[in-house]
């Protein structure tokens, strides 16, 4: 490995890193939003919408992101819907992640025992107060490990963005390997930048899980 080449490549990778992280986190925010909306829809059994959510979740949980992106980026323009690679990446990640987030949040909501609802109602709380002050905080705590796992999973999934010509980390690495055969240096930087992207999230995730549990349940 040539340190000179590595030094030369760092700015190129940094640029790709920023793009990957940016689109990754926009996608994750979108995924969380979709997840919350869809989970509430199924929890409150809103007719038609709840069934639509089930279809969406099954469809996106059982197909790879790469295929979803191909469909959105290459398939949709054929029928006149054209979106830029960046937007496509964020939307694709958001839709995939949304289906995972829905499941995590929904299972948290459904894990709350009926007795909690009954005791809140017998204290005279309204349905709104019950949901906001009793169900939601508990459900969120139960969902946190799932949400953290989803965030890590989605950040890893950003690695397929290169397939739709986004100049992300993978694209950059592949490009440099193809052009200059500096394979080891490129791979080294690829790994380093993914570690920078994910290790803090992984560690913070474990910490957050512990903290939230402690704050909520005191153990």
């Amino acid at each position: 490995m040539d340190p000179e080449i590595i030094r030369e490549y760092i700015p190129i990778f940094t640029q790709a890193f920023i793009l990957t992280v940016k689109i990754g986190w926009i996608g994750i925010a979108l995924a969380f939003l979709i997840g919350v909306l869809c989970a509430f829809t199924t929890y409150f059994k809103i007719p038609v919408a709840a069934a639509a959510v089930r279809c969406y979740v099954e469809l996106f949980r059982n197909t790879p992101l790469l295929v979803q992106l191909f469909f959105i980026y290459y398939g949709l323009p054929a029928v006149g819907i054209r979106i830029s690679a960046e937007v496509c990446g964020a939307i694709g990640l958001g839709l995939l992640g949304g289906s995972y987030m829905t499941e995590s949040i929904r299972s948290g909501l459904e894990a709350i025992p009926v007795i909690q609802t009954e005791s809140a109602l017998s204290l005279g709380m309204t349905n709104g107060q019950l949901f906001r002050d009793v169900i939601l905080p508990q459900a969120f705590t139960i969902s946190v490990p799932g949400i953290v796992a989803n965030v890590i999973f989605l950040l890893k999934e950003t690695s397929v963005f290169s397939a739709i010509s986004l100049m992300d980390l993978m694209f950059t690495a592949k490009d440099l390997i193809g052009l200059y055969y500096n394979t080891m240096e490129s791979l080294f930087l690829l790994v380093i930048f993914y570690v920078i992207m994910l290790l803090p999230v992984s560690l913070a995730g474990t910490l957050i899980e512990k903290k939230v549990r402690y704050r909520m349940f005191g153990d």
Partner: peptide, 22 residues
């Protein structure tokens, strides 16, 4: 932890390109 944080895509590149190179 490696598996938890490394995208499979990156691992695939390391093995496919890296092994050949090495």
């Amino acid at each position: 932890e490696i598996v938890r944080i490394m995208p499979q895509m990156v691992l695939l590149f390391i093995v496919f390109f890296g092994f050949t190179k090495m």
